[in-house]
Design a protein around this nucleic acid. Structure first.
Lengths: 105, 105
DNA sequence: ACACTACTTGGCTATTTTGCCAAGTGTCCA
DNA sequence: TGGACACTTGGCAAAATAGCCAAGTAGTGT
């Protein structure tokens, strides 16, 4: 990788953090407001330790921050705009769906 | 993963396709206009087979299309808007950089 | 027909990621 | 103080990903 600069690498790292169904789902949920880990765990439906590790990934990427209040830990998005592009992603999803339909027909 | 619907999974798949330095770099390059594989290979600097496989990933995600003209194969973006959100990603990158600086200080 | 360029695909190993269980930390409440 | 929550961290096995080499396909020029 010669011409790939560190800026592109940094961008890819952030995309990678978002590029998992459970993590993206949690981000979509956090876009609606802060949630504690137990709530996210309930929604995602995997082991608590798995949820915790996913949140660590998002935290390391700088996409979420945690705040401890009492025994609970609340997470929220640092930069909600990262979910805006979902509109465009969905355009790709839709055209993929049409493409598949076209193949079936 | 109980509450994670197929739409979120489809979105994550597309993000995953973009979440690699070489692939993101190629998309950024394609945003400036179509390129043949040989040009991308030159820019990325890895083995031709590696570049080709990365392009297959992008193609399967519906992010690029290929067109054969003579002996060459040209690729172009299907949905250029997917790169728009880079502005917001960069906001995360910048705040991460500041965070690290703050830790050093 | 033959070599040459421009790819794609198969196959392999090394690395990374994922998700579970178990164990540890910190807080609250009795 | 002791036990129940609400997490995080360590460790591990299974699965997915990355990148190289080698081999195959397809056009191009001679």
């Amino acid at each position: 990788m010669t011409a790939i600069n560190s800026r592109t690498e940094a961008r890819a790292d952030i995309l990678k953090a978002m590029a998992h169904p459970a993590r993206l789902f949690m981000m979509e949920e956090l876009a609606r407001g802060e949630r504690c880990v137990c709530e996210l765990r309930e929604l995602v439906g995997t082991d608590l330790s798995t949820v915790s590790k996913h949140l660590t990934v998002l935290r390391n990427a700088g996409l979420v921050v945690m705040e401890k209040r009492g025994a609970q830990v609340f997470y929220r998005l640092t930069t909600p705009c990262v979910l805006k592009f979902v509109d465009c992603i969905d355009a790709v999803v839709r055209s993929n769906a049409e493409r598949h339909l076209a193949l079936v027909r």
